[in-house]
Amino acid sequence: MHSVSMLPEDRYRGAVVEDLQLPPAFSLPADESISRALELAYERDFSHIPVLDKHRRPLGYIDTAALIAKWQAGYASPNDSVTQYMCKFIRNESHPYTVITPDTPLAELAEFLHHNIFALVTDLNRKFVLAVATSQDLENFVSRRGT
Rank of each mutant, 00 (worst) to 15 (best):
S3V: 10
S5G: 00
M6E: 15
P8H: 07
P8C: 10
E9V: 11
E9P: 03
D10N: 09
Y12I: 07
R13N: 14
A15Y: 05
A15M: 04
A15G: 07
D19T: 06
D19Q: 11
L20C: 08
P23C: 00
P24H: 11
P24W: 04
A25H: 06
S27W: 14
S27T: 13
L28R: 09
D31K: 04
D31H: 13
D31R: 08
E32I: 03
E32D: 11
S33E: 09
S33Y: 03
S33A: 09
I34K: 00
R36H: 14
R36T: 12
L38G: 06
L40N: 03
L40Y: 03
Y42T: 15
Y42W: 13
E43S: 09
D45S: 14
D45N: 15
D45P: 00
F46E: 11
F46W: 12
H48A: 11
P50L: 07
P50S: 06
P50Q: 08
D53F: 02
K54I: 08
K54L: 12
K54P: 10
P58S: 03
I62F: 02
D63K: 00
D63R: 00
D63I: 00
T64W: 01
A66S: 13
A66F: 02
A66N: 08
K70S: 11
K70C: 03
K70N: 05
W71F: 13
Q72H: 05
A73Y: 00
G74F: 04
G74E: 04
A76I: 04
S77E: 15
P78E: 02
N79D: 14
N79M: 07
S81G: 00
T83G: 04
T83N: 05
Y85M: 02
C87N: 10
F89G: 05
F89P: 00
I90A: 11
N92R: 06
N92Q: 09
E93S: 12
S94A: 13
P96L: 11
I100W: 06
I100Y: 07
D103N: 13
D103A: 14
D103C: 01
P105Y: 05
L106T: 10
L106K: 08
E108D: 14
L109I: 07
A110K: 07
F112H: 15
H114Q: 15
H115P: 01
N116D: 10
N116M: 04
N116A: 11
I117Y: 12
A119M: 08
A119R: 02
L120T: 03
V121L: 04
V121D: 11
D123L: 01
R126L: 09
R126A: 10
R126P: 01
R126M: 13
K127R: 15
F128A: 14
V129L: 13
V129D: 08
V132I: 13
L138E: 10
E139W: 06
F141G: 03
F141Q: 04
V142P: 07
R144T: 12
R145T: 12
R145E: 15
R145Q: 15
